[in-house]
Amino acid sequence: MTRRRFRRAGGPGNAVTAAVTVAALCAGTWLLSDGTGAHPPPQPSAAQAHTGAGDRSAVGSPAPALPPSPPVRVRIPAIDVDAPLTGLGLTSTGSLDVPPADDENLAGWYEAGTTPGERGTAIVAGHVDNADGPAVFYALGALRKGSTVEVDRRDGGVAVFTVDAVEVYDAAAFPDRKVYGAAARPELRVITCGGGWSPTTGYRGNVVVYAHLTGSR
């Protein structure tokens, strides 16, 4: 599989500051072992994509930024996700590490970047499957605009995000700056693999959920 780079974007609140690979999330090991490719994960429809420059705020009024606090858990009720979060660092090659593949209900966050709820773009990533079957973000492509993503924080609070869009990208056309660039308000990206699957090359790209902070408790 090829490796994709998350480029540094200027400005405060930038989420990603080094090259990151998503290849390790995208092996499609379950589908390979199944041998049929009959159970690919859902993919977002065109209706869930961004429709214009002003559409993000239409699905929820932005809430004030929260102080930094590491996240400990992510919940996405619409697709039955309720998973602990582990911090992800960088590998020796400057790429983002990934959660252990043997724990199907574990997601990770880029802990050198923005914490969810803080001003800027926070990054959460997780496997779509492992050798045993679907993993934590298998159903991410079925998420719809207006859905809620909740992140429990170490300070005891909960950051509540509303989904602005769900898009899928081919690996060769991944929009680094759009996905990982700095943001003036608290935003969240949730990422897994998608874009169709081939038994020879695995998943062809990535599903990306865009969300912004609309509340806290």
Rank of each mutant, 00 (worst) to 15 (best):
G11D: 07
G11S: 13
G13F: 04
G13K: 01
G13N: 04
N14L: 09
N14E: 12
T17W: 09
T17D: 13
T17F: 13
A18S: 15
A19K: 03
T21H: 09
V22G: 15
V22F: 15
A23P: 02
A24K: 12
C26R: 09
C26W: 00
C26L: 07
T29F: 10
L31W: 11
S33F: 08
S33I: 05
T36M: 11
G37Q: 07
A38W: 00
A38G: 08
H39A: 13
H39F: 13
Q43Y: 00
Q43V: 05
S45C: 08
A46M: 09
A47N: 08
T51R: 14
A53H: 06
D55T: 10
R56S: 12
R56A: 15
S57I: 08
A58R: 13
G60E: 02
S61P: 02
P62Y: 01
A63P: 11
P64H: 05
P64D: 08
P64A: 15
A65Y: 02
A65D: 11
A65M: 03
L66R: 11
L66P: 11
S69N: 09
P70K: 12
P71F: 04
V74A: 14
V74E: 06
I76F: 09
I79G: 12
D80Y: 10
D80C: 05
V81L: 11
D82C: 09
P84C: 06
L85C: 05
L85D: 00
T86F: 00
L88C: 09
L88G: 09
G89W: 05
T91H: 00
T91N: 13
S92Y: 03
T93E: 15
G94W: 03
G94L: 11
G94K: 05
S95G: 04
S95L: 13
L96M: 15
L96Y: 01
P99G: 11
A101S: 15
D102V: 10
D102G: 12
E104F: 10
N105V: 02
A107D: 03
G108R: 08
G108I: 10
Y110Q: 06
Y110A: 13
E111F: 07
G113Y: 02
G113K: 01
T115Q: 08
T115P: 01
R119Q: 14
G120Y: 04
G120I: 06
A122H: 04
V124A: 03
A125S: 10
G126Q: 04
G126A: 15
H127L: 13
D129F: 10
D129T: 05
D129K: 05
A131M: 02
G133M: 12
G133K: 02
G133R: 01
P134A: 08
A135C: 08
A135M: 08
A135P: 06
V136F: 07
Y138P: 06
L140H: 12
G141M: 04
A142K: 04
R144A: 15
R144T: 11
